[in-house]
Design a protein around this nucleic acid. Sequence first.
RNA 1: GCCCGGAUGGCGGAAUUGGCAGACGCGGAGGCCUCAAAAGCCUUUACUCGAGAGGGUGUGUGGGUUCGAGUCCCACUCCGGGCACCA
Length: 822
Amino acid sequence: MARPFDVNAVETKWQQYWMDHGTYEVDNDDPRERYYALCMYPYPSGAAHQGHVRNYTFGDLIVRYQTMRGKAVLSPFGFDSFGLPAENAAIKAGSHPRVFTEARMAELKASLVRLGAVYDWRRTFNSHDPEYMRWSQSIFLAFLKNGLAYRAEAPVNWCPGCMTVLANEQVNADGTCDRSGDLVVRRNLEQWFFRITDYADELLADVDELAWPERVKSMQRNWIGRSEGVEFALTFAHDASKSLRVFTTRPDTGFGVTYAVVAPEHPLLDELTTPEHRDAVDDLVARANAATEMERTTSSSEGVGLDKRGAFTGSYVINPFNAERVPVYVADYVLGTYGTGAIMAVPGEDERDFDFALAYGLPVIHTVQPPGDFEGGSYHGDGVHINSGFLDGLDVAAAKERATEFLVDHAGGLRKVNFRLRDWLVSRQRFWGCPIPVVYCDAHGIVPVPEEQLPVLAPDDVVMDKTGQSPLATHEGFLHTTCPICGGPARRETDTMDTFTDSSWYFLRFADPFSTDRAFDPAEVAKWMPVSQYIGGVEHAILHLLYARFYTKALIDIGLATGVEREPFARLFTQGMIRYEGTKMSKSKGNLVTPEPYFTTVGADGLRLFHLFVGPPADNVDWTDQTEDMIEGCARFIDRVYRLCQYDDVFFHEERSELDLAVERAVHRTIARVTNDLERWSYNTAVAALMELLNVISKTARASTGIDRATLDEALDAMLLMLAPMTPHVSAELWEQRHPDAPSVHGQAWPEADPRLVVHEFVTMVVQINGKVRARLEVAPELSDEEASALALANEDVVSALNGAKIQRVVARAPRLVNVIV
RNA sequence: GCCCGGAUGGCGGAAUUGGCAGACGCGGAGGCCUCAAAAGCCUUUACUCGAGAGGGUGUGUGGGUUCGAGUCCCACUCCGGGCACCA
């Protein structure tokens, strides 16, 4: 494409200008209204791809737009620089992860600068900066001191490929590792946890108040998984002094209990197992232990029952509802980590119990009357209770209440709320992360590293190999230290923190990255928080957002973030993915389309405009053969603006006329539309409105009838002001050409629409006969319904279309429409 | 299985409150400029019948509400995403 100006020269000129002038630096004591715009902390994966371009184009538009709206806009940037890919690459290349990471950081940062994204670079930091690590560790110790961090042995998800423990969130539904795809296995290890479950209720309740996409909110609710029920005791048949506690959400189905189940790891299993069933039970337990968590918790696609494996323990318990003996089984479909690790089984109303009962020949009793067309199996709907003694005749809700009361009175029942959410496992047996700052002393046990010794930094002289252990675990210099309490020999913790901890508080530090004596000054942070607009991919809908919410609440509660809003992200926007031939673009698939070639052809402005214009920001974009043409179309639009600003082929006239008024009205209507569209994340229609405006201006100015000089100049200025957040480089360049003495376009105020010019002078009224359009007439907007009807019925096209038919009714909605019913 | 989205020309999409369906752009067709091309500019472009004027049809499918439905209600089909032995 031949361009009317040197795109690359213009773009680098303005990028340099913004950097040199600190245009987007903002101080914490800025008196203007505050706005905190933030794109999610990026992992430095290398040169930018179109997903980054899209993300940062939206973010940059908001920063520039809100600045023009007169706000003090906080726009920080830094890297989530710890993480597995760097470590794996370093192992492969035999180098240090830092070398790899910092090279990638430089690449991505250069791409973003080249895109024209602007930041307050004074505030930048990265997760692996010693200063940031110091406060990450300090926060860990504060959690430890306040009982929010603890160490426990737990069955954990171990990925043989990554050679580390994974959080539940990092294990896919099919039991494979989210990163490497290896099959995850279970192991028992001593691990560090954060007590996120203490916040389960608040994390769930506060979701309702968030201005987030409904989809993301529902994912969070789903993940937290609150369920209300009752926990009660099933007394042993052979020893009335002992009992098995179970949790259920369906106490109303108690009369349908035909057996009970304990998880293979249940502490009472041994006691419940009789000698003649010992072998079968041991066999089942061994098999369950060998299986992965996911193998145990995922039903086979073959369907009915056969995949649920269990064994009779030989013992019985008493069903408190009807005093009947029911057998106790051990089965792999009951999890030791949820509820009490034991259940009452009701095959009549529970699908899983039904499958198991079918496979093991256990009786099925229906306690809720299913509807007539019920096909059999278990029934989960509402209905009248049957076979249920004192509950007969009640619906599910009423029976639940009566049964709960009964259990509370007669079976040690307690109303209970259980959550699917588990505590957050934060230990990682990896090198490239933030070391957990504790030491182990034979005399004093777990001892926190004193604050003044932070940060604990990993040594540089490590051997990155594939032994299955972090190189820290075998590094003698790192490993051996002295106990801060007694000075005796001690061993350092060699695990590092999950990198999600780094991204759980970075947004707080961005508000006050200058503190040297603490992670941040809460008073400074409170000025900016919550983040006004958070932007990122939907892939972080559960993990990152939940952890960051937890950190914020926890930091407030332990006094480190006093006065800060409890919900960190007021508004969240999740942008669509860029896809290529139906799949997500990714480096591993080799289908990345990098922005660099476009920077040199259509420029950053052209590419930005494409991403804004291609469709709704929340929708996915399919990168196809057509995409190139659309990008060129966007560059073509920029060129047309450029040429018009040079007055190419423009005719001027002396006297202002109706033609000029029409242009002026179009300008103000466009200002109103674009402003509204930008506020509601409708960037594609905002661009369309500007294209329409250009068509109007250009048509008028290039017609032989000509345009008034002042009208054209005002229209072009308005155009450039509105384009400034979208195509910042060319807008700044043209503004400078037109206003050599005025500040840069980005220092100008956003234009205001004059309401008197926004309304149309005439509007097109449609006349329908039986709902079909038969005539269009130009009318004044303030026309009344009566006038509209009269006008419509007098119109000759309407009269001829009616052809003398008898009018039944006339519906008038002035000034838009009149519908004549015949 | 459950929960969220979504389905509109050849393509990306627009229609903010129930009121002109298809804005804007891409692609296509024709033209201007040019020795020629590129670039640029202009016209046209939902489908269909018609030489034309003009008519008919049309927003995944089938019903419904309404003077009027892409928009609201009911039933369904397909596509995308999330959750899925959590008792």
